[in-house]
Nucleic acid binder design. Structure first.
Length: 270
DNA sequence: GTTCTTACA
DNA sequence: TGTAAGTA
């Protein structure tokens, strides 16, 4: 009974494909102990350990063609650097996944929120929020793909964020994304009248805004500050590409209705 | 049945 | 990297 093993046994032992082992040989990183009379590759424990190292280096992102160089010439210090580099890469990847996880949670949460409360008015408490401007345009301009590509400031995952259109009464409308630190613009904390809506076409927006202001007037809310239109394009995923908008405007706290208030003071703002 | 080589997507 | 064909 031979003490060496065949390629398929080695493959099974190390949980890799036979093809991969031959590939490593072709690239000069793993030679069999010897070839049997039938040309079968035979491997001993030495190759087992060697393959373990190769697989580890692969996991660290070392390309197959440079593994040979690693194994023959790397000092302990060079290996340490290699490990530190891949540690940093993994931390970056972890961060990316955490952000994706957060986004998924947010979408699920918002989707549930919008499907149950479409066209409902709410009062939302908002803390001071900061924004970065990514495009500024005349309100009569149509935001087409060309304009988007040419003028917009690069924002990572733009369409996964809540895009804030701020109408300050002038003819300029600015598009913002939220940031953690003070930047181009900020909204004061306070109570905001909010309405969420699903619309089919952009031209329904005007009507929606009128409705919104009518409602505010009917409820005797004292409006201050600009009109905020929030576009949540990622929610269109759920509704045949209908557009999801939320209108918000800062209202001055009404002193007359203390206590008894039938509004939803949801603090479910991000 | 297993492995080998070669070729291909 | 996986899969397939044709051999030994």
């Amino acid at each position: 009974m031979k003490s060496e093993i065949t390629i398929s046994e080695l493959a099974k032992l190390m949980n890799v494909s036979v093809h991969q082992i031959r590939y490593f040989e072709e690239k000069g990183v793993l030679e069999p102990a010897y070839k049997d009379n039938n040309q079968y590759r035979m491997y001993s424990t030495e190759q087992v350990y060697q393959l373990a190292h190769i697989l580890l280096l692969r996991k660290l992102g070392v390309p197959v063609h440079s593994i040979k160089e690693c194994m023959t010439s790397f000092s302990a210090d060079q290996y340490r650097q290699l490990l530190q580099r891949s540690l940093r890469e993994i931390e970056g990847e972890l961060l990316r996944l955490e952000q994706l996880q957060q986004f998924i949670k947010k979408v699920l949460h918002e989707q549930q929120n919008s499907s149950s409360r479409s066209r409902q008015y709410q009062i939302k408490r908002r803390d001071t929020t900061y924004f970065t401007c990514w495009i500024e345009m005349d309100s009569s301009t149509i935001l087409d793909a060309k304009l988007l590509a040419e003028q917009a400031k690069r924002v990572p995952n733009l369409f996964e964020s809540d895009i804030h259109y701020i109408y300050d009464g002038s003819s300029i409308v600015s598009l913002y994304t939220e940031t953690q630190t003070p930047d181009d613009f900020s909204l004061p904390g306070g109570n905001y009248l909010s309405m969420q809506s699903l619309i089919n076409e952009e031209n329904e927006l005007k009507h929606l805004i009128e409705q919104f202001y009518d409602y505010a007037a009917a409820q005797s809310y004292v409006i201050s500050g600009p009109l905020i239109l929030i576009e949540k394009s990622y929610l269109s995923l759920f509704s045949n590409n209908k557009l999801h908008y939320e209108l918000q405007v800062l209202i001055e706290t009404v002193a007359t209705s203390e206590g008894g208030n039938d509004h939803d003071y949801g603090t479910d703002n991000d």
